[in-house]
Nucleic acid binder design. Structure first.
Lengths: 347, 347
DNA sequence: ACCTCGAATGCTATCGCTAACGCTCGATAG
DNA sequence: CTATCGAGCGTTAGCGATAGCATTCGAGGT
């Protein structure tokens, strides 16, 4: 005697069929919204389903269809604000598309990931996988996926931007616009805090920053370009290096909001008024940006929109059956958001 | 001709069996680490699996075992820091236990949830479900789960604390300790910002606060108890109400870190030094607590530990087959964390 | 030499659902 | 009036794995 683990009312498709006086196949057709069922028959079937409190067995369907209807999200991004927005966008779109979203993580990087990914895929049967940054740029992960023939979509990748379905942003342009904005305010002494070298976005953002300065004919000062790792703590170090002493910049462009928050904190500690004596800008427009006082001038990345788009792309590719293979790339533009943390430099 | 959607090397258990010169059943036994297989045979099977790059089909296994090995996380908590820690704890434990974690969300509350939950469970076959706050206290959700006979575990529930498997905290005691700490610093004028009324933790924390004041014989001032909703924005309003005018508290206990951050922001705006002129404390020790400057004195809730425990409880209950029904309750204690946002009151 | 017994393995019948094809029957064309 | 056609539905044969016996086989007891 089998235990029906999670089925109180163990009604099967056959029971429904019997009750409705049709064959199981017809019930299946109703279930899947297929054509070729007379309205009257459909009614009878639906009623029988209701009466028996019938719930289709997803495992059985998956087995027969050779599809699991599960998408996997492989992530190791430690930024909670980012992840949480990512999830919102994905979950909504997944539900719409009739998929479920499973999340898998491994705290480590690249090489460790190859194993982790293999393990995950060995025990999961995901129809497809979503790779947010920075995982989307780990070669070992991509290799593993390709070897196993698992379709995937990348969010904001740096490499091979059009070799695989992806959602991409214009980080570079946005960073350039942000820098231009600071220049227009009258700043000429601008510091920059780099992001994590593991993330492609770091290089994009820095490139945009440098391009804007170059166009304005302003020379870079090495001590005003500080390394960071997208974390608050790394931002603290960078900010201290940049702001101690009297020869400091009048504006700091941090590669993300958390590091910008650190700059604000250091400025407070040093008695520097933000934005009066120091303008600070971030990137991403995560919750941190509006949690600070003053609120951050930053670049808004529509993360939820991007993740929703990634689900779109992936599910559409799956429906197409993986054959008709034009690679879909979607660009989601960033937007400059001006808030209280920037002002013209002090006279 | 079937499309093997996600199976490049479509090796089945039969192929492995053939190659190893055994029956499929034996391969299955090896796969499930069952006893009664000679070491030599096991070796041969394992080798065959490797050679064929065999990957078991989870759907088939689920169908046969009447178990999906998927747990569902039903959440609508908008606090990114909380969610992200929750996920970390769960994912790790899930992997250890051989389960996968699927997440499902619906932005709405209670009544809407009943439908959402039904829909989710109708299309998912989760072996069990995890309910973090505040969903764990939505009666309609619990009803739906019970009607459908889906096992669930709750995290930090307020109601029926021992009617169902749960992970619980000592919010109340921790809030009392925190208040005591402020009293010991010499504060007697203490404000309190309430949490979301939808969350049971709100009431617990407030009760702890009131208890400590009462024990110290200090009267409450109504205008120093402000409503909040656990969001930064609600904290801003509460802080402004509490801090404008001269007759203000010397310390504010906010029911969570985000609202404490708002208090710090308002204090900054009003030119009040934290902690010199105003002590501020939070609750939860999310990332926000250390992202601010000064860093927050707060109460650390080991969220990841709690979520890991919830997976433990649920999976163990599932292994037991749902019969042997003593309800497992696990208490995870909170810890007072003193940082820079508190100091004795100004003379 | 015969029987018993348990460890190691195989056989068979599902698990619940769907693809593929086949049948029926009324409508339409010729 | 018969051949054709397609909408509507049924039949059959799996999908890949596991439960529950059945079977084999060698070791030890008598």
């Amino acid at each position: 005697m089998r235990t029906r683990a999670n089925k109180q009312s163990g009604a099967t498709i056959k029971d429904v069929a019997e009750r409705a006086g049709v064959s199981a196949m017809t019930v299946s057709r109703v279930l899947n919204g297929e054509s070729r069922v007379r309205d009257e028959t459909r009614e009878r079937v639906l009623e029988a389903m209701k009466e028996l409190d019938y719930r289709p067995n997803i495992s059985a369907r998956s087995l027969a269809k050779a599809r699991s209807f599960f998408l996997g999200l492989l992530y190791n991004n430690p930024n909670p604000g980012y992840v949480s927005e990512l999830l919102v966008g994905m979950m909504n779109r997944c539900r719409q598309a009739g998929y479920h979203l499973a999340i898998e993580d491994s705290g480590s990087t690249d090489s460790h990931w190859a194993n982790a990914v293999e393990m995950v895929l060995r025990t999961s049967n995901f129809d497809g996988v979503i790779l947010p940054p920075p995982v989307c740029d780990f070669p070992s992960v991509r290799n593993a996926l390709e070897e196993m023939g698992v379709p995937y979509v990348r969010i904001a990748p740096e490499q091979d931007r059009d070799a695989q379905p992806s959602v991409i942003t214009d980080d570079r342009e946005a960073a350039e616009r942000m820098t231009q904005y600071l220049l227009e305010l009258g700043h000429t002494r601008i510091g920059f805090i780099q992001g994590d070298t593991e993330h492609g976005s770091s290089r994009q953002r820095e490139a945009g920053f440098r391009a804007a300065l170059e166009k304005a004919g302003i020379a870079l000062r090495d001590e005003w370009i500080q390394p960071g790792r997208y974390t608050y703590r790394s931002g603290l170090v960078a900010a201290e290096n940049m702001l101690r002493g009297d020869d400091r910049p009048s504006a700091v462009f941090a590669s993300n909001d958390d590091m910008a928050a650190a700059v604000v904190a250091v400025a407070n500690k040093l008695g520097l008024d933000v934005p009066g004596q120091l303008s600070v800008t971030g990137f991403d427009d995560t919750q941190t940006a509006t949690t600070l006082w003053p609120q951050l001038t930053t670049v808004r990345q529509p993360i939820a929109e991007m993740s929703a788009a990634s689900v779109d792309i992936l599910t559409r590719a799956l429906e197409r059956g993986g054959e008709d293979s034009d690679v879909e790339i979607r660009l989601i533009p960033c937007e400059l958001i001006v808030r209280g943390s920037t002002a013209p430099p002090a006279a």
